[in-house]
Design a protein around this nucleic acid. Sequence first.
DNA 1: CAGCTAAGGGGCGTT
DNA 2: AACGCCCCTTAGCTG
Length: 295
Amino acid sequence: METGTIPLEECVGGLDLYRTLESGQSYLWRRSDGEMYSDSPAPDAWYSTVVDGEVVRARLDEGAGVLEWASTTDADALVRELLCLEDDLEEIVANAPDDPLLEDAYEAHRGMRLVDDPAFGCLISFICSTQMRVSRIHTMVSTLAREYGTPIEFDGETYSAFPTPEELATATEAQLRDLGLGYRAPYVVRTAEMVAGGEAHPEDARDLEYEAARDFLTRFVGVGDKVADCVLLFSLGFDEAVPLDTWLKSAVEEYYPDCDKGSYAATSRAIRERLGGEYAGYAQTYIFHHLRTGD
DNA sequence: CAGCTAAGGGGCGTT
DNA sequence: AACGCCCCTTAGCTG
């Protein structure tokens, strides 16, 4: 076992691990008390995930002023990457457009960061997310990991990696329906088969310009504009992506009515400009969390 | 191409 | 306790 600490002072603008990992961006982490996404924060809890066969655990130690990690490998760089610790939140907030809703959101959830999830797990997570509340999405993704992922022993406990495309492609629609995925079951199987078969990989979108990348991702079954935007924002480093979900649509309706241009693409473009362009995705994450939690 | 609708099932608020 | 409605939407069909 390897362990380490990352000084919180290196995370410019702070780090709120609870809001970063339980705000509906990532479904690939687990909380040690099993109460993740239950609306009951546990400031001392360990969060764990598995990336490329390596277990990573992380915990905030506010008293010591550090983010503590433990892993099967030297995970210092990996933890910084997964939690976007290099993002300068002070600069992002300072450069944000003057906007009452956005300022409230940034103020209320200071320290919440974007995540940088592995692409395949992120893609499947958001295919599962349609018409679903965040706690159930987390349950579904955990179930997929338990049923199809490779178990890994670490520090006396068993962790389940999210399945590889090849592992998930062995699933049948009927099995996934039995696991509670509903109409998403065939989407997950077909997308896993596409990636496993080499037909396309979500990582391929990295090389494209933003809107072309979004179009590219919609070739996967169960992926429309909104899910594609989530994968771009939460996994592929497109910080300008603004997923237009029900909460953002209601925000457009109530706060930015002039940004409603009818189609997804045009409205997305307008709200992206209104929220600051380059880092509009950060703004989206804060507004989404602000409206959803009512905090 | 725009517009409509079906597609799990659980949790939550209302009767 | 039963009921209706909602949930970070997409695919497929119709006109």
